[in-house]
Amino acid sequence: MPPFLEFLIATFPMLWRGLVITIQLALGGIALAIVMSLAAGLGKMSKIPPLRWLCIAYIEVFRGTSALVQLFWFYFVLPFFGVSITEFQAGVLVLGLNAGSYGAEVVRGAIQAVPRGQYEAAIALNFTPMQRLWRIIVPQAVVSMLPPMGTIFIELLKNTALAALITLNELTFVAKQIRDDTQRTTEVFLAVLVMYFAVALCITAVMRTAEWWLSRGLDRGGVR
């Protein structure tokens, strides 16, 4: 057996444990990102000024600053305000809030792209404003949200590596430890890059499937 294979097989259990934490981080982050995208995207279109301003402030602050700076701020600064969080919690929080600020603009754009006639038909059928939004508008907007959301989720996956810098033992952290112990940089980091790439491909596949599944019957050209 070639020595690099032997080495990879030997280190695989450790890398696998790191990968599991990375995936948990990503899933937690994605869940929070979806909630924040919808909340802030809809909130930015609200008729209530303070709510709208709050959403704009959230979006601008998290889009305007660096994800790593946000992570350090949450991890190192929050304890001074009496809030202590674990590395994992800080990771999920920052990943979700950061991606949510980008997703909010996607949500808003997709909802505004739903033709006006759809709102009018919903009014004519006397749906309540909430029913209009959740039964008529959002289901149509979701299809066009999916591709840009897929890109945002992949950025989120890439950002999970930042949690290594606050000593969370996810994939990148484990890889660096192995490298420091063995000095075999190329093998470890190449293996890790391939693992991230594989997870990214999975995210893309899931998003494509969801898009295909949700757009059955929809004629994207002349939707009326």
Binding site: P115, G117, Q118, E120, A121, I123, A124, L125, N126, T128, I136, P139, Q140, V143, L214, G217, L218, D219, V223, R224
Partner: peptide, 22 residues
């Protein structure tokens, strides 16, 4: 408005069917 509007309905020039529903 909703109580009164219940008595009225409308058909549009461009149909405005909901494309995501059968």
């Amino acid at each position: 408005i909703r109580r009164i509007r219940r008595k009225i309905c409308m058909v549009f020039q461009h149909f405005n069917l909901f494309p995501h529903m059968k």
